[in-house]
């Protein structure tokens, strides 16, 4: 297993240590994880899968919690929902 993982966040390449979360990968580019129902920009709050502020689209599937999803090679993450 390689010591780093390469994935794409909003089309930009990111390299994170193996075992890092998708949240960590997104944070390398932006703190905009999701747009709230009244239009605010939101980023992770609880860091442990409870608050759902870190929801992003991963490989086309919306509303995935970035903080409890391990980053994997080749993942496409979209944080602009």
């Amino acid at each position: 297993m390689s010591a780093t993982v390469r994935l794409q966040v909003n089309g930009q390449p990111v390299e994170v240590p193996a075992g890092a979360s998708v949240a960590a990968a997104v944070a390398h580019w932006t703190l905009h994880f999701r747009t709230s129902v009244s239009g605010e920009t939101r980023a992770p709050l609880c860091g442990m899968g409870v608050c759902f502020e870190c929801r992003v689209r991963i490989d086309g599937v919306a509303h995935q919690r970035a903080c409890i999803t391990p980053a994997r090679d080749g993942m496409q993450v979209d944080s602009h929902d």
Binding site: S21, A24, P44, L45, G47, M48
Partner: peptide, 21 residues
């Protein structure tokens, strides 16, 4: 408290352990 960059204390610790920069 809803601004990006504001998190829990244990929350930021957890994020950091998982590679948050």
């Amino acid at each position: 408290w809803t601004l990006p960059g504001v998190s829990g204390a244990g929350g930021l610790q957890a994020l950091t352990k998982q590679g948050w920069p």
